[in-house]
Write a protein that binds this DNA or RNA. Structure first.
Lengths: 186, 186
DNA sequence: GGTTATAATGTTATATTATAACATTATCTA
DNA sequence: TAGATAATGTTATAATATAACATTATAACC
């Protein structure tokens, strides 16, 4: 079973209540072996690139690592700041080219409504990202709900529209931040 | 009945086959009294602002007119170029402040994945925009499919997430551009 | 192993989109 | 009409992204 990056990811629908609870607690602050899921993501990326005959270079791998390692969506210039400290001559194209590669291979998603990038836990099957984005804590959780996907395809079909990449970004409040808002009496 | 801006809008699900056909033909090139739906949109905006006790100033009205009048989504700096020719001292804040107002009152939407703005045909009930966006011709059509909305709410509920603004942007090919691609044998 | 083609990255410059901060003008309320 | 508030003007700059060309690394072939 996949080990999700639950520092900034939500419990996935389909998890048992106990799994949900465990993950929610983790999200709320207790420990989580992030290096484990990070390494797993990097290994999966390497395998996928080998399979596709493309190169996960040092730079690309490092950018993917940074995107995955962040505790929330990471801007291109955040990544650049880190790279600048590590290699001479890092510049915007350095980052954007690596991100273009990672995007093209489904290894990261871009949060279109906010510009930053997040690692994708499931790069093998190409898919548009479905995100829950908390407007208070900034956390983004990737969903992949087939009900949503089917509803979209049905609706597009009625209009005669051929679906390429469906972008779903649901802004709102995560469970944790809902509690806090309620606690403040607002 | 509302008269949609079908120069850049799609047939809406729920229309009869005849209505669909009429609209598709219009989209594909035949005549359409665009000034009529534009004026109607401006009148509706004025009425809505009066009802809400806010001011649809000359500037705001003009920006709304430009957004509605475009045959496709319009960038802030496209709007600015037009304004510069009409009033001295138009600058980015001129446009962005007007757009902020129009967005806040649901009179326009922003296409998050591409930055530009489009007029909303249905500002009375606040809603996140659901768009079909053609990657070939750039056209954006607003949907409001309750099936999609319900699927999203159901999925978010499972994750304990409180939905604020759902953003749906479906990139793909419009009926017209599908035909052209097929015609080219690609 | 050396040569050539291709892919990746380096480097400089600039385009595009958006906001901050403060001054001025218009409108509303009393 | 005076004072308060809202809207706009004005200048500067932040944040995000790409263009264009030079250089370096890798792959593929001999």
């Amino acid at each position: 079973m996949l080990y999700y990056n639950i520092i900034y990811r939500f419990p996935f629908p389909g998890f048992t209540p106990m799994q949900q609870a465990a993950q929610t607690m983790t999200f709320m602050g207790s420990g989580h072996d992030h290096s484990h899921c990070l390494n797993e993501a990097l290994d999966r990326a390497a395998a996928l690139c080998t399979k596709r005959g493309v190169r996960l270079t040092t730079l690309r791998r490092r950018v993917l690592e940074l995107v995955w390692g962040g505790h929330r969506p990471l801007g291109a210039y955040d990544i650049l700041d880190t790279l600048k400290a590590e290699r001479r001559g890092a510049a915007p194209p350095t980052v954007y080219r690596a991100l273009d590669f990672l995007l093209a291979h489904g290894l990261v998603h871009r949060i279109e409504s906010q510009n930053p990038f997040v690692g994708c836990p499931d790069p093998d099957k190409p898919h548009g990202g479905q995100f829950l984005i908390c407007r208070t804590c900034g956390m983004a959780a990737e969903l992949n709900d087939s009900g949503v996907d089917q509803a979209i395809r049905k609706s597009a079909k009625k209009a005669g529209f051929s679906v390429g990449r469906p972008i779903i970004e649901i802004q709102g409040l995560c469970p944790h931040c809902q509690d806090n808002v309620e606690g403040e009496g607002e």
